[in-house]
Amino acid sequence: QNEKLANELKSLLDELNVNELATGSLNTYYKRTIKISGQKAMYALKSKDFKKMSEAKYQLQKIYNEIDEA
């Protein structure tokens, strides 16, 4: 289960640069939040902690959705 979550989180991290570029014309909230979420996700992957990875995955998905809707 950890392996599956780690792969999903890696996949979301692969999209980080594209989504970060998409924040160029948006409010600074999005820029700041996506950077923080990305850092948390990288830390969670290194720690291999299921709870941290779950939270990081949720945060990344949430900010990606917010950027898409903005």
Rank of each mutant, 00 (worst) to 15 (best):
L60W: 01
K52C: 10
E20C: 14
Y43W: 13
L13E: 00
Y29D: 03
N2C: 14
I67C: 03
M53F: 02
S25F: 11
N17V: 13
K57L: 15
K31C: 09
E55K: 07
K48W: 06
G24Q: 15
L9P: 01
Y30H: 03
Q61H: 04
Q1E: 13
A22R: 15
K62L: 07
K48S: 04
G38P: 00
T28Q: 12
L9A: 00
K51S: 09
K31L: 08
F50Q: 06
L45M: 04
K40S: 05
A41T: 02
Y29H: 05
L13M: 05
I67D: 01
L21P: 04
S47A: 07
I63F: 03
K31T: 05
N19K: 15
Q61T: 07
N17W: 15
L21R: 10
S47V: 08
Q39C: 13
E66F: 07
M53R: 01
Q1T: 09
A70G: 04
M42D: 04
S11H: 10
D49P: 01
K46G: 05
D14F: 08
K46A: 13
K57R: 07
Y64I: 13
A6Y: 15
S54H: 07
L21E: 08
A6N: 02
K57T: 04
Y64K: 11
E15F: 13
L26K: 04
Q39L: 14
T28V: 12
L16M: 06
D49W: 02
A6T: 06
L5V: 05
A41W: 03
L60Q: 00
F50P: 10
Y58F: 11
Q39T: 09
R32K: 11
L45A: 02
L21Q: 09
R32L: 11
A22I: 11
K48E: 04
G24E: 15
M53V: 01
D14C: 12
Y43C: 13
I67E: 01
A6V: 10
E3I: 09
D68C: 15
Q39H: 06
A70F: 07
Q61A: 07
A6I: 11
Y43N: 13
Y58M: 11
M53C: 03
E15T: 07
A56I: 03
K35L: 11
E55I: 11
K4P: 03
A22P: 05
Q59C: 14
S11I: 11
Y43F: 11
L45Q: 02
N7T: 11
L26R: 04
E8F: 05
L60S: 00
I34K: 01
A70Q: 07
L26M: 08
Y58Q: 10
Q61D: 03
Q61P: 01
A44M: 01
E8G: 03
K46V: 10
K31F: 07
D68M: 15
T33C: 15
L60E: 00
K52V: 05
I36W: 12
K10A: 08
N65E: 09
E20T: 15
N17A: 14
T23C: 09
K57M: 12
K52D: 05
A44L: 02
D14R: 12
Q1M: 12
Q61N: 05
N19L: 15
N65P: 01
N65W: 12
N65C: 13
F50E: 06
K10Y: 05
E20H: 09
E66S: 05
K57E: 01
A44S: 03
A6K: 05
L45F: 06
E20G: 06
L9C: 02
A6H: 06
R32H: 11
L12S: 01
Y58H: 10
S54R: 12
A41I: 02
F50S: 06
K57V: 13
E20L: 15
G38Q: 11
N7F: 12
D68G: 12
T33V: 12
D49V: 04
L60K: 00
